[in-house]
């Protein structure tokens, strides 16, 4: 069925997590075994280590010992970009549990601040497990802070995507969400990058989020990252037919692609 086809570009050089048997068949079809690097046996936690501390907090890694973000509230829109890798701590002044790199997928890292304590900021991280967060010091050099007026809402039950700017709804679209077996994971996450894939179909722009499918450890050779992206067949909008991603109409994609990186995405079940 067309709507169930895996959406893949080139397979990435590295992947994380073991293959789920259900996904394996899809993956092999999608990647065709031509992937240069993925090693299904590789432990998910073994991400690249950086000088600043623990494993790099990227969409490919699984972190341990990080505080989990459990609330679904919006924030004041503060986002942070580290000019160089910075250590991520388990609590203010605590022990390092990860390193936040300066780039994610070739784009500058911007993460949302969800809590503050003195000179410490708790930020959402793009790694597994979903809801990973950690504390970074705001007093160190090279940290750029900015404000995003946007919040993206994904209402899985009603299969709609909304865009709110400065408290006012500026967009509301029917969207396709994960089917019951591969649901779009609920929780508070963020726009991690704005990618222009080599192949412009099914979507000229892909917005990977800082969250992953809870049922697919890997997908299409990638780490199961959930994304907002377009879809050429408009009949899918308003249906629960995807592998976790949120497919949106062209008009929505146009507006969402202008939303600053680090903008909160609140996914409600």
């Amino acid at each position: 069925m067309a709507t169930r086809n895996a959406f893949t570009g080139r397979c990435p050089a590295r992947t994380a997590g073991a293959l789920v048997p259900v996904a394996a068949a899809l993956l092999l079809g999608a990647c065709g075994g031509s992937s240069p690097g993925p090693s299904p046996g590789r432990a998910g936690a073994a991400g690249p280590r950086e000088a600043a501390g623990g494993p790099a907090a990227t969409t490919f890694t699984t972190l341990t010992g990080v505080p989990r973000d459990t609330t679904a509230a919006t924030t004041d829109g503060l986002v942070i970009h580290p000019a160089a890798p910075v250590p991520v701590l388990d609590r203010p002044g605590g022990r390092p549990v990860a390193t936040l790199p300066a780039e994610q997928l070739g784009a500058p890292t911007w993460v949302p601040v969800v809590e503050s304590s003195g000179d410490w900021r708790r930020v959402l991280l793009p790694s597994r497990p979903n809801g990973s967060s950690g504390w970074i010091s705001a007093s160190g050099p090279g940290l750029r802070t900015a404000h995003t007026p946007y919040t993206v809402g994904v209402d899985v039950a009603h299969r709609r995507v909304t865009l709110v700017k400065s408290g006012r709804k500026v967009g509301d679209w029917a969207a396709a969400v994960g089917d019951p077996k591969t649901p779009t994971p609920p929780g508070r996450t963020f726009v991690m990058a704005t990618l222009a894939p080599a192949k412009r179909t099914p979507s000229p722009i892909v917005l990977p989020l800082g969250t992953h499918s809870a049922t697919l450890d890997t997908f299409g050779g990638g780490p199961g990252t959930v994304a907002l992206h377009g879809w050429p067949d408009a009949s899918v909008f308003g249906k629960a037919v995807t592998h976790g991603c949120v497919r949106v109409p062209e008009a929505a994609l146009r507006q969402l692609s202008k939303v600053p990186l680090g903008t909160l995405v609140l996914i409600t079940a």
């Binding site: 169930r4 086809n5 895996a6 959406f7 893949t8 570009g9 080139r10 397979c11 990435p12 999608a30 990647c31 969409t59 829109g77 503060l78 986002v79 997928l105 070739g106 784009a107 911007w110 802070t145 900015a146 404000h147 995003t148 007026p149 994960g178 591969t182 726009v191 990058a193 704005t194 990618l195 222009a196 894939p197 080599a198 722009i205 892909v206 990977p208 499918s213 697919l216 997908f219 299409g220 050779g221 990638g222 199961g224 990252t225 959930v226 994304a227 992206h229 995807t242 592998h243 976790g244 991603c245 692609s257 202008k258 939303v259 600053p260 990186l261 680090g262 903008t263």
Partner: peptide, 20 residues
């Protein structure tokens, strides 16, 4: 201090297989 507006992202040429 009022933080500046966050920049509008520039799409980067990159492929990441996502969950469709």
């Amino acid at each position: 201090k009022t933080p500046a507006e966050a920049p509008v992202p520039v799409p980067v040429k990159h492929d990441l297989p996502v969950t469709g």
